[in-house]
Amino acid sequence: MNTTTTSTTRITQALPSAHRIRLLRIAREVNIPQGTRLFEEGTRADRFWIVRTGTVTLDMHVPGRRSPVIETIGFDELVGWSWLFPPYVWQLGAEATTSVRAYEFDATAVRLMCEHDPQLGSAVGQWVGKVLAHRLQSARTRLLDLYAPYGSGSAL
């Protein structure tokens, strides 16, 4: 019986076990105190994380205002994808809203592994692509302003 997750974008579901094991070998287990900023928009994307416990929020800088939270990320989910694509710069900010235990990965090391092993590179690219597609689809659906009085759009 599946007691944990039905997600298809988590590393445990999306990556073949051999590739997952190779990646996890270079992971560092970290404890991130509540309130820690993991990264800031516009800075160099040199790491990424997979959350084991706790919650991370993604936010966007709005000049003169408190950064609004765009999305929350939890158990077994990927935090950060900008490390995979040039110019390797974070597009959003991230903060631990609870204390977080996570696997932290050195982005340069992972990119080098991917370059040396095209199969691993393809698997990692597909995994991150899946995560991106899922988040893009969610963001697009949210753009509909679903819960407005009449939903989005005009009646036929």
Partner: peptide
């Protein structure tokens, strides 16, 4: 949490072949 309600399915505890779902809200 912040995000689309479907994201919560990742956190839910259910065995898909042995599950029933009940959904209500805007059609999209």
């Amino acid at each position: 949490e912040v995000g689309l309600v479907t994201r919560l399915l990742d956190r839910a505890r259910f065995d898909p072949p042995r599950s029933w779902a009940f959904v209500c809200g805007p059609e999209p």
